[in-house]
Amino acid sequence: MDGQATPRAWELVLARVEADLRAGRLAPGDRLAPERELAAQLGVGRSSVREALRVLEVLGLLRTATGSGPTSGAMIVAAPRGGLSALLRLQVAATGFPVADVVRTRIALETAAVEVLAGAPDRDTASARAVLDAMDAEGLSVEEFLALDAQLHLALTEASGNVVAAAMMEGMRTAIESYVVAGAQAMDDWTATAARLRVEHRRIVEAVEAGDGETAHRLVRDHIARYYADAGLAHPRNGEDTAW
């Protein structure tokens, strides 16, 4: 015995789909073989095939339609972001992540995102600008302000065009909001802090719009690290930029 567990039947189906995708035998828009055919090819029960298809659908890699005809069955789709974000949100909810690790990961993802965005000839900051304007509204509660804060950071990451980074940011959003709200409650003068955050946000967006990736990188790093330090939470070791 080699000590390795025998793959469950539905895992064989997933492995087959993965292998076909890697080899180019399947691509987005293609339909999988019918359940009965897949079950026969792999020597597993149809219930195992259905279980594997449900997993792929949750992951955002598959869309299934019931009935008969050309539109029925399971089709490969190229939209994994929703599934990745959902799985990360579940992991955050189940185990929680150390605040320091969230901070380091945010800095790694967001500094890279704004640097790429600043260097893009067709950079688009319209969504970020809209959130900035919303954050200037009077009478925002702490929770409303910080929800917009999270949306701003996500908007900049999305605008960079890195769908994996955007999915990770979206998946961590609940964790981020919970930590920043806890931090805000520990601050003596939230009004002054919110005013400072508004200024820092606009400077970040302005640096991106000016095509100054180096400054945008530095501003994002300092912005995130300072908030966590001021809130008495956690911040990166020795000012490092990486997530680890």
Score class of each variant (00 low, 15 high):
A15I: 01
A167I: 00
A207T: 05
P7D: 06
T174K: 06
A27N: 01
P236S: 10
A78P: 00
Q151P: 01
F97M: 14
G69V: 03
L53T: 00
A94N: 07
A137R: 15
L84Q: 09
R16M: 04
F145E: 00
E35F: 02
S47F: 00
P34L: 01
E115V: 06
V199Q: 09
P28C: 08
R81K: 06
L132K: 03
T66E: 15
L62E: 01
R202S: 11
M1R: 13
A134H: 05
W190H: 06
R196G: 11
R50P: 03
L154Y: 12
S127C: 08
D20N: 08
A100Q: 13
E115T: 15
V131T: 08
E37Y: 09
D241A: 15
L156C: 03
S141Y: 10
Q91A: 15
A100K: 14
A78I: 05
Q185W: 13
P98T: 05
L21K: 03
R8Q: 14
D133C: 06
E57S: 09
P121M: 09
Q91V: 11
L12H: 05
L148W: 06
G161N: 05
V13Q: 04
R36W: 06
D189C: 11
R198A: 12
A147P: 02
N162K: 01
V116Q: 12
L56H: 02
A112P: 02
A225G: 10
A159W: 06
L88C: 05
L90A: 14
M168A: 15
E144Q: 14
T174R: 11
V220D: 07
M172C: 10
N162L: 02
T191D: 15
A159Y: 03
G73R: 01
Q185K: 14
L62N: 01
T66Q: 15
I204N: 02
G67E: 08
D241E: 12
A9G: 08
V13W: 04
H223P: 11
A210K: 09
E37G: 03
A210G: 07
A167T: 00
Q185N: 13
A15N: 05
V142A: 13
P121I: 11
D188R: 11
R226Q: 15
E57R: 08
G82P: 03
A167N: 02
A182P: 00
G60S: 04
T6R: 15
A100E: 14
G24V: 07
S48M: 01
V220Y: 08
V102H: 10
E35K: 07
Q151Y: 05
T242H: 14
A79I: 02
A225F: 09
G96V: 02
A113H: 08
L32S: 02
E57A: 11
D2C: 06
E240A: 15
Q185I: 00
A231E: 06
E209K: 11
R129T: 06
A207L: 07
A79F: 10
A155K: 07
G213A: 10
A195D: 13
A195H: 04
A86R: 08
